[in-house]
Simulated assay, not measured.
Amino acid sequence: MRCWNSVSAPGLLDALLEFRPDLAIVDIRLPPTHTDGGLRAALAARERILGLPILLLSQYVEQIYAQELLADQAGGVGHLLKDRVFSDDQFVDVIRTVAAGGAVMDPEVVSKLLIRRSRGEREPLSRLTERERQVLELMAEGRSNSAIANRLFISEKAVSKHSTSIFTKLELAPSDDDNRRVLAVLAYLMSVPREGRIPPSH
């Protein structure tokens, strides 16, 4: 296993492109700006290396970070708050999940992203059918419509139909500001405990 410590955002980007690691653990705030350099470097690397697993660490909840990271829908993403990593086992589990192509978001991050309506309700996942929940779970694993179709033994057209129904039931209307797929995945990650997820049918 190679461990590479970058002291700047440009250095991080160069290292990611050169070494193409199995997983990059990235601090969002890096020199020289100490703002969002780490995030920008990670996004730039994922544009060149599709699906490069990235685990972001940050001190505070800032909505734009998770939304931008998940926007390419390639999977292999995570965003944790530094002061909420409570154990080595927990952190290792997150690393394995992200490295395998899954998505892990700190509940605080997800909550911030989902507080969008004045009445403060979370997305009504209970409205989804069993098949729609299966599609959403696979979507949350970073799978494309084609991969979801193969996993569930249905057509891509059926996956698209289920996805549209999911967005409608979660009240995720099209807009210039929101990525409905991202918000649906975040709703799922926050609201459904791991042990309660419905396994895909075979």
Rank of each mutant, 00 (worst) to 15 (best):
K161Y: 11
A9D: 06
R84S: 01
P10Q: 10
R2V: 02
N5F: 09
F86W: 10
A103C: 08
L80I: 07
D36E: 12
D22K: 12
A149C: 02
S126H: 09
F19P: 00
T33G: 05
E123Q: 08
S165W: 03
A158R: 02
V94W: 01
L136V: 14
R96T: 03
T97K: 10
R2S: 10
G37T: 08
L186P: 07
E137T: 12
V182K: 05
L183N: 03
E171M: 10
S191Y: 00
A45S: 00
V61C: 02
H79F: 13
V94H: 03
V110A: 12
S175C: 08
L69G: 00
E137Q: 13
L70K: 09
M105D: 01
R116L: 10
E171Q: 12
R181V: 08
R127C: 11
D14E: 15
T33E: 15
D177V: 11
S175Q: 07
E132W: 04
L43Y: 05
A44Y: 05
V109Q: 01
Q59V: 08
E141P: 01
K169S: 10
R197V: 10
S163E: 13
R122Q: 08
N145P: 10
Q67W: 09
V77Q: 13
A9W: 00
P124E: 09
M139V: 13
L52G: 11
N179S: 12
Y188N: 04
S160C: 11
R181K: 08
V85L: 06
L57I: 08
A42H: 03
D72K: 03
G75V: 05
I25P: 00
A42I: 13
I198A: 02
A187T: 06
H34T: 07
R96M: 09
Y60D: 15
L50M: 09
L114N: 06
Q134R: 14
P200Y: 05
W4A: 10
R46T: 08
L189C: 07
A158G: 06
R143E: 04
P21M: 01
Q134V: 13
V94S: 05
R40L: 14
F167E: 15
G51A: 02
